[in-house]
Design a protein around this nucleic acid. Structure first.
Length: 483
RNA sequence: GGUCCCAUCGUCUAGUGGCCUAGGACAUCACCCUCUCAAGGUGGAGGCACGGGUUCGAAUCCCGUUGGGACUGCCA
């Protein structure tokens, strides 16, 4: 007995959707659980109008970036049209299909008082000749029922009477998804079809097609077992949509999510590892994952939780890896990959790798996304600190103590030993002379030097910024008050 | 409307008839730590949709109600 053969079959109509990523992940789990499991990638690109070549590369590279690598493929569904055509012919000859000349409007009009849902089978017995304008419909059995063996939901039984005579081939002769997908799954010897819940309603049709193909061609292939994953929803509890919701894996990469955090988070949607720990390595998921344990109800895609997890993964990175991982955001010119929609506000000339390396450990424990680093360290590399006017007003502009503290700091800092601890002590003393605690005393200093009210620890920041630049910025802040 | 799927804290989930006074995580609140912000620590609030059964015993099984979702294309 050979291992499971699963496939991930995206349609290249856009960026790599997080819902697709989750489907790929669960498929990949099943493949990796067995030494001889196979994870196959098939690009379902038969709808030329909606597919774009650039999306294919994007989806594959995003998938690889997440860590899923296909064992077979990537195959193109469009390369299998000969097999699809042969299936259409076999099915037509075996009387499973019939030509239908109804237009979309006519089908719509006939829906009125029919008993079966959808198309009423008007052309089923009219012996319409096959020709231009005739689609091919499946002669759905009127009796009996079709059972979908679903590992997640159990057997799902649908009465054949409620399955319409669906279109299998366009009037152009080309097979539609329902058929093409089945033909390919048969040829690829797929054992487990793991896909989104939105496919559940058309699965009975596909099983009917599968069995018809076995009968018509004499090539009897075992129907796969199915697993329909609950959909991912937004805050309105609607299926995540490309149009409304931020779903592109590529955009999460741009923001600075780590692949491990994304896959770990995705594994938690509809499933959970044993025990109380949710932050688990993929190897643990592979060990423990069972389709039978997947939840039945839609899951909300919670960005806050994913960001939190990402922060945990960032914090546990060894410094060297953190430095390497953050390069696309802090020094993209020296990186082999860079986010598409953001570049640092500083230039390569103004960037100082040594300073970054020194402050990095303090930044590492403060960010949830790698993209957040930029705002936290920009004052080091920008010629002029990026002033937050409200903060300036509050801590310096309208605060005489703040101004006094800066004036005094100008003198003291001119000669004090330039290390974080001594700067710390000096600031405590500066504050005391004005009756300010350190919390109050650091505020104007921080604002003058970093332009912000929040940031990495101040005294280390001053040390790494250097005496000259610190004094200059204090002078500039004071000048700003005056004028 | 029709077909199908689903229902445990705000959210993701653990729970498969007694271990449940329902556990964890995110979010939230308080306190501690603290130069800001985070991180971390401690603690708190917060849930089995409702109604009937079955059973000695139900979050767990059955039925109904209500609520939500998916699908309903000559897209995939």
């Amino acid at each position: 007995m050979s291992g499971p053969r699963v496939r991930f079959a995206p349609s290249p109509t856009g960026y790599f959707h997080v819902g697709s990523a989750r489907t790929a992940l669960f498929n990949w789990f099943i493949a990796r659980q067995s030494a001889d499991g196979v994870f196959l990638l098939r690009i379902e690109d038969t709808d030329a109008e909606r597919n774009r070549e650039e999306w294919v590369d994007g989806i594959i590279s995003a998938m690889h970036w997440l860590g899923f690598v296909e064992d077979e493929g990537p195959f193109r569904q469009s390369d299998n049209t000969a097999a699809h055509d042969a299936a259409v012919t076999a099915l037509l000859e075996a009387w499973y299909l019939y030509p239908c000349a109804c237009t979309a409007d006519e089908v719509q009009a006939r829906k009125g008082d029919n008993k079966t849902p959808g198309y009423d089978g008007f052309c089923r017995d009219r012996a319409v000749p096959r020709g231009p304008g005739t689609a091919l419909r499946f002669r759905t059995p009127r009796e009996g029922a079709t059972t979908v063996p679903d590992l997640i939901r159990g057997d799902v039984v649908t009465s054949n009477a409620v399955i319409e005579d669906f279109v299998v081939a366009r009037s152009s002769g080309a097979a539609l998804f329902a058929l093409a997908n089945v033909v390919d799954d048969r040829n690829d010897r797929i054992t487990h079809v793991i896909r989104g819940e939105e496919h559940l309603p058309n699965t009975p049709k596909q099983i009917l097609l599968w069995e018809a193909l076995s009968a018509a061609t004499g090539n009897v292939v075992q129907v796969p077992v199915y697993a329909h994953l609950p959909v991912l929803v937004n805050e309105q509890r609607k299926k995540l949509s490309k149009r409304r919701d931020p779903v592109a894996v590529e955009s999460y990469r741009d923001q600075g999510y780590l692949p491990a955090a994304i896959t770990n988070y995705l594994s938690l949607l509809g499933w959970s590892p044993r025990g109380d720990e949710e932050k688990v390595p993929l190897s643990t998921c592979i060990e423990q994952f069972r389709l039978e344990d997947v939840s039945h109800s839609p899951a909300f895609f919670d960005l806050k939780k994913m960001a939190h997890l990402n922060g945990e993964y960032i914090r546990e990175l060894p410094l060297e890896e953190f430095l390497e991982a953050s390069a696309p955001w802090v020094s993209p010119w020296a990186s082999n990959w860079q986010p598409t929609d953001r570049t640092p506000p500083w230039t390569a000339a103004d960037f100082d790798g040594d300073t970054w390396r020194r402050i990095a450990p303090l930044v590492q424990e403060r960010v949830a996304l790698l993209g957040d680093i930029v705002e936290m360290v920009d004052f080091f590399f920008l010629p002029v600190a990026p002033f937050d006017e409200a903060a300036f007003d509050k801590t310096i502009g309208r605060d005489e103590n703040g101004q006094a503290l800066l004036s005094n700091a100008l003198e003291v800092f001119a000669t004090v030993e330039w290390t974080a601890p001594t700067l710390h002590q000096a600031t405590v003393a500066l504050g005391e002379s004005l009756g300010l605690n350190l919390r109050k005393a650091q505020a104007p200093l921080r604002c003058a030097v970093t332009g912000r009210t929040v940031g990495p620890p101040l005294f280390e920041s001053l040390e790494y910024l250097g005496r000259d630049r610190t004094l200059t910025r204090i002078r500039e802040a004071l000048a700003k008050v005056a004028g």
